[in-house]
Amino acid sequence: MLPITEDHLVIRTDFSDPSAWAAVQADLAQKWDDEFDIYVEIIDDPAYDGLGPEQFLAMAPADYPHQIVVLADSVTMADPERLLLVVSLEESDEEREAFLREHGYWDEETAAGGRGWENGWPQRGGVFRSTAPGVGAIAANLSVANMDLGEFATAVDEQGVFRNFENE
């Protein structure tokens, strides 16, 4: 099971480059928007070496308190920007659809466009990359329910990276 923590998790899953990991930790120690701390719980445990999103989905209980887990994987370590992998732990589309139908908010027109990030719907297991400042913005806003994960997922750039609304 995933550890239950106050803050969202950033889990190291690649142990091939200690200097790259040190750089990731330094990035996460910076402030986002030049004023806000990045509140995450960093897990640096070789037990997670090589694990991917599917394994973390299986480790998240149904009542897990966070909507995401962030992975520092092999791509993170190899990328000069140290882009982290954000994995959605949100409910599946089917559960969301049932909730919306039950409460009279289902919109057949929106649903016809498909499900997933493209229309802001939650997608359990959906992934996108983010900069460390982006992770700070995501974690902070999800923690206070100011924004939902779909808003971040649909704000990725053409490379599929959330950069903390830099292009707005």
Rank of each mutant, 00 (worst) to 15 (best):
Pro133Ile: 02
Pro18Trp: 01
Ser130Tyr: 03
Asp73Val: 00
Trp21Lys: 06
Ile138Val: 15
Gln55His: 02
Ala22Thr: 14
Pro53Tyr: 03
Asp93Phe: 10
Gly114Pro: 04
Leu84Trp: 07
Gly136Arg: 06
Leu2Pro: 11
Asp63Gly: 08
Gln55Glu: 01
Arg101Asp: 13
Gly120Pro: 06
Ala47Pro: 04
Glu151His: 11
Phe99Glu: 10
Ala145Leu: 01
Glu102Arg: 13
Asp148Gln: 13
Glu94Val: 13
Gly114Gln: 05
Asp107Lys: 08
Glu81Trp: 06
Gln159Ala: 09
Asp73Thr: 00
Phe152Lys: 04
Ala72Leu: 05
Ala98Phe: 13
Gly120Val: 11
Ala111Asn: 09
Asp7Lys: 10
Phe36Met: 11
Glu95Trp: 09
Val69Ala: 12
Phe99Val: 13
Arg163Ala: 08
Ser143Gly: 10
Asp37His: 15
Glu97Phe: 14
Thr131Trp: 12
Glu81Thr: 09
Val144Gly: 00
Gly150Gln: 06
Gly150Arg: 04
Glu109Tyr: 06
Glu97Tyr: 14
Phe56His: 01
Asn119Val: 04
Ala60Tyr: 09
Glu35Pro: 05
Leu28His: 14
Glu118Trp: 02
Ala155Asn: 13
Gln25Asn: 11
Ala137Glu: 15
Gly134Cys: 11
Gly52Arg: 00
Leu85Lys: 05
Leu85Ala: 03
Val144His: 00
Gln55Arg: 02
Val161Gly: 11
Trp32Gly: 09
Glu108Pro: 11
Ala60Glu: 04
Ser19His: 08
Asp34Ser: 10
Asp33Phe: 13
Ala155Phe: 08
Gln159Lys: 07
Gly125Ile: 09
Ile42Tyr: 13
Gln25Glu: 12
Glu97Lys: 15
Val135Lys: 12
Gly50Pro: 04
Phe36Tyr: 10
Val135Trp: 14
Ala153Phe: 02
Glu168Lys: 14
Asp45Leu: 08
Pro46Asp: 01
Ile4His: 03
Leu28Ala: 14
Asp148Pro: 14
Ile68Cys: 12
Phe128Tyr: 11
Pro3Met: 05
Pro122Val: 02
Leu142Tyr: 12
Gly114Leu: 06
Ser143His: 06
Ala23Tyr: 06
Ala60Phe: 05
Trp32Thr: 15
Asp17Met: 01
Arg101Met: 13
Gly52Gln: 00
Ala145Asn: 01
Pro65His: 11
Ala137Gly: 14
Ala98Trp: 14
Arg129Gly: 08
Arg96Leu: 06
Val10Lys: 14
Arg82Pro: 10
Ser92Gly: 11
Phe128Leu: 03
Leu57Arg: 04
Ser143Tyr: 04
Ile138Thr: 15
His66Glu: 09
Glu95Ile: 10
Ala60Thr: 03
Leu89Pro: 08
Ser88Tyr: 07
Asp34Trp: 10
Gly120Phe: 11
Lys31Leu: 14
Phe152Thr: 09
Val127Met: 06
Gln67Ala: 07
Leu2Ile: 04
Asn164Lys: 12
Asn164Met: 15
Gln67Cys: 08
Glu151Phe: 14
Gly114Trp: 06
Leu142Ala: 14
Gly104Phe: 02
Glu91Ser: 08
Pro3Phe: 06
Ser143Ile: 05
Arg115Gln: 07
Ala58Arg: 00
Gly120Trp: 10
Arg129Asp: 07
Ala29Tyr: 05
Arg101Gln: 15
Ser88Thr: 02
Ala20His: 00
Leu83Asn: 13
Gly150Trp: 04
Val70Pro: 02
Ala22Gln: 12
Gln25Tyr: 09
